[in-house]
Design a protein around this nucleic acid. Structure first.
Lengths: 212, 212
DNA sequence: TAATCTCTGGACAGATATGTCCATTGCGCA
DNA sequence: TGCGCAATGGACATATCTGTCCAGAGATTA
């Protein structure tokens, strides 16, 4: 009687995706090093051996996580840069909206991968390729709106770096505080989303004429 | 004869600082998770027990690394922001020079700490405090050069984020490539240092009048 | 020379991972 | 109802890392 239903409450089967999701959660919150089969099996309330039915070994799981990341965080940015837009301001807003929407682009996942890359050369080269591809898309966006390639490359780097740095901080201050820091001439834009602050910062910058 | 001189070549004593330096090296290159006493003892070619003479346990070593980081990477930025300067451009250059000089500010160490913070709340609060202190110094710099507090806070964030993002990428492209991407009107500034590119980018931006 | 202090090596115990093997459960289907 | 297979649990072997204990090597000092 003490072992009637091992699959107690949920009675739902643990799928490959469950392992993957749990792993991704740990990856994001604690880093690759903490993605351990033992830990995952405990959160899923399943024995470790079950893992080896779905995956050959830990490496196969990690590879799947990388693929998952590429699907989420690369294509999205590129697509958003290529969206139809009437002017550079609108185009830039497309870009930033995707960067800022956790359903489209998971910045914490992105940083978890960056950390991972520091100790794994193959991951390093994959994220380098990702950065290149994204940057190329942003550059193309500027070029499409009339900037010379040289100038476009420069501007693309400024906003891309700025956006990464913004996320690197994992800014957690409440919306009101952040809003109150905005200069008056930007506050009109900020009704919708706290992170729109970054968008408007760039939009204001982009409005400037190139220096000569 | 097989064990004559255990302390083979160097014959130099392993000091507490040796442990600390080795640990810091691993921390920067591989992350906290890889800072292991066993690994360190192997690189130092000494038995593990020696470690416990200098440190109570692994935690004490990690605490020491945190203190080391605070001494290196916080005070420096603040001091450089407070340096005497004739105008905002010169002041900003002071700020960026320190950010860019690995002897004054180790950005890889900074990111290693950020990664660590993701899985340790106490580290999280220390790096949050560090970011606050640095940002406050940059804001003060702008204020000292005539910007209103609100505007200063805004500008400080833009350059601080941008600088972090620049480092997040661990940019490794050769100097010529990077230089060739600079727009002509900036290229005049770039004789001295590859990373001056970032400085001039900001300097150009800072020259702009506030929008109204 | 002898006593003392600093530091190190090696043995031991215990915690935490990974991966393998195999018996067994329970669901879908003939 | 019973068969077969997808999926799981539990035991086992092994690796890696931490921390403790203690004997003892070397240098320093009395």
């Amino acid at each position: 009687m003490s072992k009637v239903t091992p699959i107690a409450q949920g009675n739902v089967k643990v799928t490959r995706d469950d392992w993957l999701l749990a792993a991704r959660d740990i990856l994001v919150r604690r880093g690759v090093g903490e993605v351990k089969i033992l830990t995952l099996s405990e959160t899923l309330d399943v024995s470790r051996s079950s893992f080896y039915w779905y995956f050959k070994d830990r490496t196969e799981l990690l590879d799947a996580l990388l693929d998952d990341w590429e699907a989420t965080n690369i294509r999205t940015i590129i697509v958003h840069c290529e969206m139809q837009a009437s002017g550079i301001d609108e185009a830039a807003c497309n870009f930033f909206r995707c960067f800022v929407n956790p359903k489209l682009f998971d910045q914490r996942l992105d940083f978890a991968i960056r950390e991972w890359a520091r100790r794994d050369a193959s991951v390093r080269s994959r994220i380098d390729a990702a950065d290149d591809a994204r940057l190329a898309a942003v550059i193309a966006m500027f070029v499409r709106h009339g900037y010379a390639v040289e100038e476009a490359g420069w501007r693309a780097r400024i906003i891309y770096y700025m956006q990464l740095g913004y996320h690197a901080l994992e800014v957690t201050e409440p919306m009101e505080t952040r809003m109150s820091r905005l200069p008056g001439y930007l506050r009109g834009f900020t009704g919708r989303d706290p992170d729109i602050a970054v968008i408007t910062a760039f939009a204001a910058y982009a409005e400037q004429k190139a220096l000569t």
